[in-house]
Nucleic acid binder design. Structure first.
Lengths: 199, 199, 199, 199
DNA sequence: GTATAACCGAGACGGTACGTCCCGTCTTACC
DNA sequence: GGTAAGACGGGACGTACCGTCTCGGTTATAC
């Protein structure tokens, strides 16, 4: 007599198939296809899997894509908590590193895609992937405003918009190849000090 | 016998139909559909037009969407050329006003959409709609760096990224309703002065 | 101003496609497939036609098959009306001739197929193809009973069952090759005179 | 130490499951489904049995159906051997009784089903269920021809066709409800005496 | 008594065909 | 020659079953 989690009846789902599906999805995205051009049939074929096996796990293409994108995320970095500048750089550099890979580059574009239709990947990716990072940034900014490192009148949302917006900008419309390693650092410095001439 | 530009034989194309098609397209986009969910058949039905009439003018859905989006653009504002701050605010405020309409809000999302597939709307919209505005901003920044209004070491691309990125950020992930009227002004001020505490 | 039938809007349906579909269907049936093994996709492929073109005309496979079978039917033969024997032979010989072709042989098997599910081909084929012939036979039998050529106590349904049943029997379970040319004649004679020893 | 047939190791197959499967199959057929609409999954569900348990016993749906149909057959009746008429009636009445049940009615339809594809139920049911009965009828007819009860020139196959054909006719296309109890008798009499007016 | 072997239910697996939707093209009659 | 209507061949959708394959668990005989 056990109180163990469960041990559902029947043959368990194949982890191998699941991985193959995710891989195939990311592969196809990396080839430059948008969500619209992605087809479940192509994913199934590339993964060597029946369509059923996909639909058993995800209700539709968008759900699958959101999950596939999620697997590419690095975890939040540990924050030293000593300087606002260092913490912001650490947080932004995670994204910079991710976007450094070609595959992830395509992925981020897909993630930002399209309108707010219920099936849209964009909103859901935002909730799932971006929100935690934004919250972390927001927290660092609040701390900085409180302890005097930042302007006491700082509009947190505006700070967030400058930092995130710039990073997304480079990811989406920046130079084709890898992003420069010091990008996060330079974004943070420009955002902190402004672009106007120092007095 | 005329020497006029053309005067092609046969019945001329109906301007009314063309407008109805564009309107129908924007309507459907405003209802929150992404490019993928848009269908030519739905557009034709809503516009009360045959599919032929659409395909006679645009080779595919994406071309139509790009054209439809284009009709929403305001022209570049005249720049006073006296202060970098004022000029930047003027340039950014055009976008802010556009994005103020719900319809345009959806449209901008669509415009940012998706990957770099050849049919993708994103890249083409960028070329057609964003590039001129970005060039204008870039020009203002260069002028400012040259005449001492801005940091002489300013990385123009970084300035552009901060300004545009923040605006896009608010358009895409900002509050649901209209954007505040002073948004452009506040973005520019934060970008110019930075968010760190003044000495 | 016309009062003509109609002249429906849009491109008219292609008769060529329709014929190709029917032909393909009969071909595949003639290859020995039952209704169950028939697939719309195979029919479409063989006919060089899109599935849509089939579904635009027939709601499902069974409807298509019923229509296809119908095209194989010969019209009712003219009846001399002089002798019951001659008229019955004429009526039965139509079926014998049809069943003489291999293709039709398969077809008749399909036509007799299966249960009485709403989708079943059997019942519908019966209504459409067999009923008129049975009615004709029944009429000849009634006439014969009335004018003294047949037993005045004859049960018409029983006569019909003997005649039709025997013919179907040979079609379904008779010798593999063509049915003998005098089959109808012999069936009629046996049915008329009985198989018992003459007094 | 036994010399019995076998006594295989391991858990023996469940007779209960086997019966439940057959029952479920006949049930579903009786609901008017044809072989095509029958699904193994539905049978398994209705029988409360795993699909494996079915496939362990029968290679495919058709085999199962043939076996299921077989369970409905009555054994051949003992023949008095005194009169051809009585023996024929006895043989035909077995079928009449079987077909009297609604379930069997559907079953006989299924049994006659469809084309001659290798998987077809029809041919196999014929071999298994009809052949012995037909042989018995044929034997009675031969005996009658030999001993003078029947026409010395009788074509045995024709006699068989009249008798069997008529019975099948009533089973397949006769009145909806039960078949009349004297049907076999009346068929035999009509076949023996013919339907033409007595001299 | 305890292996061991075949069974059992459940249900996931790679597939095939379904019937639907939309693509971009085409063919009508009408204007 | 443009237009609305709508049929065309094609391709992907999401669903239903196919027949096969694991699972954990059960029930027999054989050791």
């Amino acid at each position: 007599m056990t109180t163990q989690p469960q041990a559902r009846a029947g043959r368990p789902r194949s982890e191998k198939a699941e991985k193959a599906i995710i891989e195939a999805t990311l592969d196809l995205i990396a080839e430059g296809l948008g969500v619209a051009e992605l087809t479940i049939e192509a994913i199934a074929a590339r993964a060597g899997v029946g369509k059923t096996t996909i639909y058993r796990r995800w209700a539709n293409k968008e759900d699958l894509v959101v999950d596939a994108l999620a697997t590419m995320r690095e975890p939040l970095p540990p924050l030293a908590g000593e300087s606002v500048r260092d913490d912001l750089i650490a947080l932004l550099d995670v994204v910079r590193r991710e976007v450094g890979h070609r595959r992830a580059r395509c992925v981020i574009n897909v993630a930002m895609s399209e309108a707010d239709s219920p099936k849209s990947v964009g909103k859901r990716f935002f909730k799932q992937a971006m929100e935690p990072r934004l919250t972390a940034i927001r927290r660092v900014l609040s701390r900085g405003r409180a302890n005097g490192e930042l302007d006491p009148d700082l509009d947190i949302d505006m700070g967030l918009a400058l930092l995130s917006g710039a990073l997304i900008w480079f990811g989406r419309w920046g130079p084709e190849g890898d992003l420069p390693e010091d990008l996060a650092e330079r974004i943070v410095d420009h955002a902190l000090e402004g672009i106007a001439r120092r007095a």
